[in-house]
């Protein structure tokens, strides 16, 4: 949880610098379309006693003048399937500021973390920062749809998903969704821990927040499943 708060604070500090960008960049200085794609990565530890570590960082841009900023950091897969294997995945995607009736769309969800091997360990950390739209803009943030599964005997699966987006200034629209997550511990004496933090909001206009439809289940003998889903909006 401390890791989540740290990444959240660091990302919020980056967002707080966003209004300074036009002054640094000039009046009409940058383009109207910014696409930042850092997701869709796969990390697999398949062999026995194997270790797989993956870190992906994508830092993209801003869009001015009827701009459209698309940030995609989700859709990652982390799998530890070997005996006593260890898979660690860290994905950070930063992008997405749209000025002037802009649209800022941020997608950080749709991640999958699985520890299926005997005594395996899978850790996944996904941070996506995007989505600030000025001037009757529309900011859409989706950080949910994540799946965390510990199916191996004595396996351990830990998933942390942080999605920051959705500031729409000046009669804008802000849509935030952090739900539809699944956390399951099906192996004997397995552990599954899932933490999902989705932060959006901050608009004077219309706002829609959805954080529901989450599932948490410990079905294995002696298994343990803990789930924490936080969806923040409405500042």
């Amino acid at each position: 949880m401390r890791n989540i708060l740290f990444t959240g604070i660091a990302a919020l500090s980056l967002l707080s610098l966003a209004p300074l960008a036009p002054a640094m960049a000039g009046s009409i200085d940058t383009g109207g379309l910014s696409v930042t794609h850092g997701g869709g990565n796969a990390n697999t530890a398949r062999g026995s006693f194997s270790t797989a570590g993956q870190g992906t960082t994508t830092i993209g841009g801003a869009a001015y003048g009827h701009g459209r900023a698309l940030t995609y950091g989700g859709g990652n897969q982390n799998l530890a399937s070997g005996y006593l294997s260890n898979a660690q995945q860290d994905t950070t995607t930063i992008g997405g500021t749209a000025f002037g009736r802009g649209r800022a769309t941020t997608f950080g969800g749709g991640n999958r973390n699985v520890a299926s091997g005997y005594l395996s360990n899978a850790q996944q950390d996904t941070t996506t920062v995007g989505g600030t739209a000025f001037g009757r803009g529309r900011a859409t943030t989706f950080g949910g749809g994540n799946r965390n599964l510990a199916s191996g005997y004595l396996s351990d699966a830990q998933q942390s998903v942080t999605t920051l987006g959705g500031q729409a200034y000046g009669r804008g629209q802000s849509l935030v969704s952090g739900g539809y997550n699944s956390n399951r511990a099906t192996g004997h004496f397995s552990q599954a821990d899932q933490q999902v933090l989705t932060v959006g909001g901050a608009t004077h206009g219309r706002e829609l927040v959805s954080g529901g439809r989450n599932r948490n289940a410990a079905t294995g003998f002696g298994s343990s499943a803990s789930q924490s889903v936080t969806t923040l909006s409405g500042q």
Binding site: T30, G31, G32, L33, S34, V35, T36, H37, G38, G40, N41, A42, N43, T44, A45, R46, G47, S48, F49, S50, T51, A52, G53, Q54, G55, T56, T57, T58, I59, G60, G61, G82, S85, A87, Q89, G95
Partner: peptide, 27 residues
């Protein structure tokens, strides 16, 4: 317009194997 696209595939398939991958794509 600016487009940044990053995609990684990391696999440790052998027994006692180790695979480490770091990707940085900065605009």
């Amino acid at each position: 317009a600016t487009t940044a696209y990053t995609r990684g595939y990391n696999l440790a398939a052998g027994p006692r194997s180790t695979a480490q991958q770091r990707l940085l794509n900065q605009i």
